[in-house]
Design a binder for these strands. Structure first.
Lengths: 126, 126
DNA sequence: CACGTATATGCCTATCGTAGTATATACAGA
DNA sequence: TCTGTATATACTACGATAGGCATATACGTG
């Protein structure tokens, strides 16, 4: 269970991650919402914790699990090398995302948006 | 081998995909560059092809494999739900990416760059 | 301290996926 | 058509992992 990719290959783990994306949850809450046996939940959480996807805080005898960003960034960075292949196909996806995330006019001086390599785009690209 | 995540969980397959990201390759080229036995390459390519990650074109007795975008988009869309968790941590990553990819001044009207949800960024965000 | 709740772990088994090896198929050229 | 090259597939064995079940540990409360 070395790479982040093997971690997210398991459907139940992805379900847990998606659930935690909404907010932190205790083991029992995960168990109930996902209709999963408790040992299964605990074992998957163990894997996720070891891989750095989640972290737990103690609340009496409960453990509240919440997401950690680093492993997702790792997936993101791997994915980045393929971005230029979507350029043609990406517009549809972006229209979708733009409907979720309000457009930012400029102001991207604070943080330049995350974009694929595009050596054209303006004769500037080397 | 149902999901795209299981497909990319295999390190050799990720290597093949990364290689194909530079340009299309024949089976023999992949075999030589990755130092992988030919049946292994063919079998992984079979899996990748069935999953829609790659497609082959015939060139005499060679088969040239190239990437297809759809499955990557699927990973991307799954990843999207976690984007807001990086917001705080993303700046470091972006400074890194900005060192690789030259900043684009504006001109992002052609295609709005792909960005995470960030409801702040300027009082504008909703 | 006994009991109930919450979570983690250990053991066993079944399943699945990969590598390895051999072999089959397809094509090109002499 | 024979030969060499390129790629795909079949078969086997092995290793890893997830699930099920039982049990252990931890904590809180009466």
């Amino acid at each position: 269970m070395e790479s982040v990719f093997e971690i997210i290959a398991e459907p139940n783990r992805r379900a847990i991650l998606s659930l935690l994306a909404s907010s932190q949850q205790s083991v029992g809450e995960i168990e109930r919402r996902l209709r999963m046996p408790q040992p299964t939940v605990s074992k998957h959480l163990r894997v996720l914790r070891d891989a750095g996807f989640v972290q737990s805080t103690v609340d009496a005898q409960r453990r509240l699990y919440h997401l950690k960003p680093e492993p997702f960034q790792e997936v993101e960075m791997w994915l980045a090398q393929f971005r230029r292949f979507w350029s043609a196909h990406l517009d549809a996806l972006e229209r979708h995302l733009d409907r979720i995330d309000q457009p930012i006019q400029k102001k991207n001086k604070t943080r330049a948006p995350h974009r694929p390599n595009r050596e054209r785009d303006k004769g500037e690209g080397k």
